[in-house]
Amino acid sequence: MQKFNLAVVIMVLSTIAITLKAEARSLWTDQPRILSTVTAQVPDSTKKDDAVMYLKRGFDRLKEKKYQEAIADFNQVIKLEPDNIYAYLGKGLGNFSLENYQAAKENFDQALEISPNFAHGYYFRGFTRLMLSDNRGAIADLQKASTLFTQAGELELAQKADSAIEKIQKS
């Protein structure tokens, strides 16, 4: 497997303003630039350049709040690289932004099936579960995200997950 840096994509992702409802809105708005730098391992592909282009464009479209177009781009990545966790993450964020919470959860589930230690997948699925009124599942996902972020040395992200857990427990 080849490694490549998705810093550009993650920088775009970090500026996405996801509009939330209910208690998730107050939790999420406390999250400044959740993602900074992530390195991914992606299977070799004869269409790797196309997949990277669709992935970047998908995150750009999320930033522009063109959620349907973003989801279409992430679907193209999935056709080219079915195990690309970032395509499922982006697709989940698009569905979340469209308030298609069940679809978003399924997208995050797919990312986590491929990569069970994908902290960002747990983090975002936690907020999605909160929107689906599954507070227990939200807390479990955020706790897992916090543990994985801590293990990776991403202590700021671990703290954000812990703070979200505290707010959910108090609500």
Rank of each mutant, 00 (worst) to 15 (best):
D109N: 09
E113C: 03
N135S: 10
L93N: 06
K144V: 01
G126L: 00
K65Q: 15
A72G: 08
A51V: 04
A145C: 14
F74S: 10
D49Y: 13
Q31T: 09
L132S: 15
L148T: 06
L62Q: 05
A138H: 04
K91N: 12
L130P: 07
D134G: 04
K66C: 03
R25I: 01
F118V: 03
I34C: 09
I85G: 01
A22Q: 09
L27V: 08
N117I: 07
K48L: 11
G92M: 05
L148P: 12
P116E: 10
K91M: 13
E69M: 04
A138E: 02
A40H: 01
R33D: 14
G126C: 02
Y101T: 05
V77E: 12
K65T: 10
L130C: 03
D109Q: 07
N107D: 15
T147Y: 08
E106N: 08
E106F: 01
A24R: 02
E64A: 15
E99R: 03
E113F: 08
I71H: 05
T46G: 13
D134A: 10
D141N: 01
P116N: 11
Y67A: 07
E81H: 08
Y54G: 00
L6R: 08
I16K: 02
F59E: 02
S146H: 12
I114R: 06
S36F: 06
P43C: 04
A119S: 05
I34S: 05
T46V: 07
A72W: 04
G126A: 01
F124G: 00
E23Q: 11
A70E: 13
A70Q: 13
N117H: 08
K79I: 12
A70N: 11
F127M: 11
L89N: 11
A104D: 03
N75Y: 09
S45K: 03
D44R: 08
L142T: 07
N95R: 13
L148E: 02
V12P: 02
L20D: 03
N75K: 06
T39R: 09
L35Y: 07
G121T: 02
Q76C: 05
S26K: 07
N107K: 05
D44Y: 04
V77Y: 15
Y101G: 09
N135T: 13
K65R: 06
L80Y: 02
R61W: 00
N75V: 08
M53S: 04
L89M: 10
E69T: 11
T37H: 14
G121H: 07
G58M: 03
P82T: 01
A7Q: 08
L132T: 14
K105Q: 13
F149R: 07
K21P: 05
N100A: 12
A72V: 10
V42G: 03
Y101A: 02
A7E: 03
Y54P: 00
Y67E: 05
A140F: 00
I78K: 10
G90F: 12
A140L: 00
Y88F: 14
Q143S: 14
L98Y: 05
R136A: 10
T37V: 15
N75H: 06
T37C: 06
V9P: 05
W28A: 14
Q110T: 10
E113H: 08
V12W: 13
Y88H: 12
N5P: 01
K91E: 13
A111C: 12
